[in-house]
Amino acid sequence: MSTKKTLLSIENLDASIGDKNIIKNLNLTIHYGETHAIMGPNGSGKSTLAKALAGHPDCEITKGSIKYKDIDLLTLPVEERSNEGLFLGFQYPIEIPGLSNSVFLKAAINAKNKHQELKDVSATDFIKELKENADMMGINQSFLSRGVNEGYSGGEKKRNEILQMLMLKPTLSVLDETDSGLDIDSMKIVSKGINSMLGANTSSIVITHYERLLKYIKPDVVHVFHNGTIIKSGDHMLARELEEKGYEWLTNE
């Protein structure tokens, strides 16, 4: 047994979307300070796991448990999971025309502050921090008064997800294919944002198809997802092996 403190513990989890059972008997433990990469072919259930963690209404948990910070995560509504420090970086971030980025982010931060019985963030602190993080993410100031993801390119949307993550300072970030659709420069920027978050008290789950991202973000553990569950785990060398051989040597076993 590890002496490290457990942040997330998934036990014997089954989850379905519609009539289809997608996650099958999944077990996964993540300690504070760890970065886990989840790799696997299309349709293996990686995104469903992200949805299950965030509490997406389409995703029904039919068996098992998820404990997060020793709380039964499955009893928490979506917004409380976020306020407890769980962040989902969307594979396809949603456009919300007419709702400005800064209004949205401020409301999110204040919701979290309220949950922690803290005061609302001051306008000056908020703007200062937003500017710093936007700079790091290479996001133009003018974007901040525009609608959330409104008319953004794929890369801009992903950088905006990381900006939101930096502002909300989650304990556990679940990043669902944050690297898909990114050019090399954006990939570096996004990785820099993610790395700046990692520390002894934060953890992350990085869902990705490619080893590429893992050159910039060093995972402690790499899992291979197939048919709704983890079929193999290893260190970052496993990712390299997958890049060379593909998934077939594992999935055909």
């Binding site: 965030a54 509490g55 997406h56 209404p57 509504p77 979506v78 917004e79 409380e80 999971r81 976020s82 306020n83 989902l88 969307f90 971030p93 949603i94 919300i96 949205f104 982010l105 409301a107 999110a108 919701a111 979290k112 949950h115 939101q164 909300l168």
Partner: peptide
């Protein structure tokens, strides 16, 4: 989908 996205950032329904 929009409601879920906003809620996933800690904002109530």
């Amino acid at each position: 989908d929009k409601i879920f996205y906003i809620k996933s950032r800690g904002i109530d329904e």
